[in-house]
Design a protein around this nucleic acid. Structure first.
Lengths: 378, 378
DNA sequence: CTTGACGATTGAAACGTTTCAAAGTACAGT
DNA sequence: ACTGTACTTTGAAACGTTTCAATCGTCAAG
């Protein structure tokens, strides 16, 4: 480090040029652009990001031009490392053989999530629970490649959301209500109200012998929908025939056997409220098979308003969930949470107490189509 | 830089300890684990990755234990930076209002992609083309956060795949055939053969007045399916009535008006081959509206075998595309390409000539259901 | 006692950015 | 000529890993 008193006409030339022999080794880096345009690395960085910093127009042009020549594109990974932010949301979802992204339910939520992410400039990283064993690797989920996680439709015993939260990763649960005390934000439809609406509608048509095929007992939604069913029955003073309440799941195949059983009963139900559209379609198919006409002899109502519901004959009366709104709201909430937290980090406020968090609960709506009618006997 | 000749008994203590005051600032790093377990950073790294390096069992235990205590999880972003690999595939796909991830077509492909990625330990980054303007930002796509890109169903004028390739990013095109000379690998169904199969089947039923609603002219698949249609007609020596070949698109709504037009013709077609199931369903609905019975007075055949095809009444005869296999094969090919390239990098072989690349073309299959029958007149 | 060899560990140099205090520069005001 | 101010630019320190040449012990062989 000897200071030369002579004016440095070629100030760069005494810097050891060994650093980089400009081999075409991989994409150009910010360093290449800096050298090419004769400015410092920091300036190049400012040109690309810091619209607040003032840069001489001529300098800016020179840098931009050099970047263009070198086909420079900023490396997002490096940026992510220094900023400790990747502008990415992780999505943890079921991907077994039955429930996958190709499932209309999951994909509608995903669509909503995307709608929430894209406008805010966030990308989306998919974490399908392993196809084979349904497992996930917490370390991978929380490895810093996503700024936060959306946990889609976790079962009641699924610990992912709380484990992630404990690790300090922002989390929002999508499509499964959390208790306020858990301190985990969730966005879901009001399942109980949905069950209530469906049942109330059947009652209003005059049905009294109403069956319920309930959903996957591992999901809280199944309980809530059943609770809505029971509440509506009770409100109308109609006793629930326990043999009519059959635990199933959310897959269409699970509806067949119970339907046959119900239809063969001496006093079969005149209507069936199914915990989702898959089941309802299963019932429809089974009824068709058994030559029980729908809706004349049997009314069927589903839940979800899946695309197929409108297409099948007769078109299915159902409870619509605003799935893509659920996804969108969840994504927006998570982004808000992430950005709020990174604000907090700059200031030193350390009050991250696990405050009670109210779940966001969206309204379901009744969609009347052709699979429901007044009972014959009425 | 003065050399001390005294033996350094406490070599660590003269290093400025200002570096890190072990504030609980964020997640533990590899450095914390190293300090906690009294080994060097390199050793910790070896414990977690380098199963080939030899580590004393006792040391390993100590490190693992410290990591557990500190809740250490390796930072994937930092790892990605140094390895220049993220084990992630990017997926570029349409996300307009009509074609979205909730579209059964897109989501089936996505499902296949996931099936290809998960077993190889790859994650998946979603790049929906902007909801508003269908645009994408090349710089973002190629910012190093994905090791390669899957371009789903690009239009014929879509330059993303070639632009990305020019940038040195491994690319595989999914569901749109590329010419061998472009040097871009693609995986798609044999659309021409599909069109041929559909038409041949209608011909075999005795139909002669066959219409074709063709797909989105921006997609090559639309041309190929139409070519198959024409080839089958020609093979049977049946002249194509040009008024029966109507350019539409891939959305169901586009089928309604053309169908009505066709049905009002003095000599209407007895069968319609639709470029996809959306159109076929549109035709079905329009025919139902016009009280033209299917399949008695009009046979309809679709393309895709979307989930709704089997559900609608009458169930749709269609050409099945192995969508999830397409996705899976594409993902596997891309991963292979990526890993092959990073092998090459270690050795110095620089022979990355743009060799002609044969597209992978999968077989479609005819699925006969209820929407087709022999024509009445026959 | 010396040498080699081998297994285990270390230390420092990347990886490509952002960030920010500090230094430069130019120019108007005195 | 001197000072203050506003605008630009710089330089170096992170960010949290992996990688790999070099070092350190230890022990068997000579």
């Amino acid at each position: 480090m000897t200071k030369t008193s002579q004016p440095e006409l070629t100030p760069k030339s005494d810097v050891p040029q060994v650093l980089r022999t400009s081999l075409p080794s991989g994409p150009a880096t910010i360093r290449d652009v800096a050298r090419e345009s004769g400015v410092s690395i920091g300036t190049v960085s400012n040109v690309f990001n810091n619209s607040t910093d003032s840069i001489r127009p001529e300098t800016r042009d020179r840098v931009v031009e050099a970047a263009r020549r070198l086909r420079y594109r900023p490396n997002g990974v490096a940026r992510g490392l220094v900023q400790r932010r990747t502008q990415t949301l992780g999505i943890l979802f079921h991907a077994g053989s039955a429930m996958a992204v190709s499932d209309p339910y999951t994909s509608a939520i995903l669509h909503g999530i995307l709608q929430g992410c894209v406008p805010k400039g966030y990308s989306t990283l998919l974490y399908p629970k392993s196809f084979s064993n349904g497992q996930y690797d917490l370390n991978q989920l929380a490895d810093g490649r996503a700024d936060g996680l959306l946990v889609v439709a976790p079962g009641r015993d699924d610990t992912a959301a709380s484990a992630l939260t404990a690790l300090g990763v922002p989390v929002v649960v999508v499509s499964a209500r959390q208790e306020p005390k858990d301190g985990i934000l969730s966005v879901d439809v009001d399942n109980e109200r949905g069950g209530y609406l469906a049942t109330q509608y059947l009652l209003s048509l005059g049905h009294r012998r109403i069956a319920h095929l309930s959903g996957d007992p591992r999901q809280r939604s199944a309980y809530d929908r059943e609770a809505g069913f029971r509440a509506a029955m009770a409100a109308e003073g109609v006793a629930v025939e326990e043999a009519f309440v059959i635990p199933c799941g959310y897959h269409g195949g699970e509806a067949c056997e119970p339907t046959n059983r119900l239809l063969r009963l001496p006093h079969p139900p005149t209507a069936i409220f199914c915990a989702n559209d898959n089941l309802a379609i299963g019932v429809l198919l089974a009824a068709r098979e058994a030559e029980v006409s729908v809706p004349e002899k049997l009314s069927i109502i589903g839940f979800d308003d899946a695309p197929a519901a409108a297409l099948i004959t007769p078109p299915l009366t159902t409870i619509r969930q605003p799935l893509s709104e659920i996804g969108r709201r969840a994504a927006e909430s998570l982004i808000e949470k992430i950005e709020l937290r990174s604000e907090e980090r700059k200031s030193a406020s350390e009050a991250d107490g696990i405050a009670a968090t109210l779940p966001v609960v969206l309204d379901p709506t009744l969609v009347v189509r052709g699979s429901t009618a007044a009972p014959l006997s009425a």
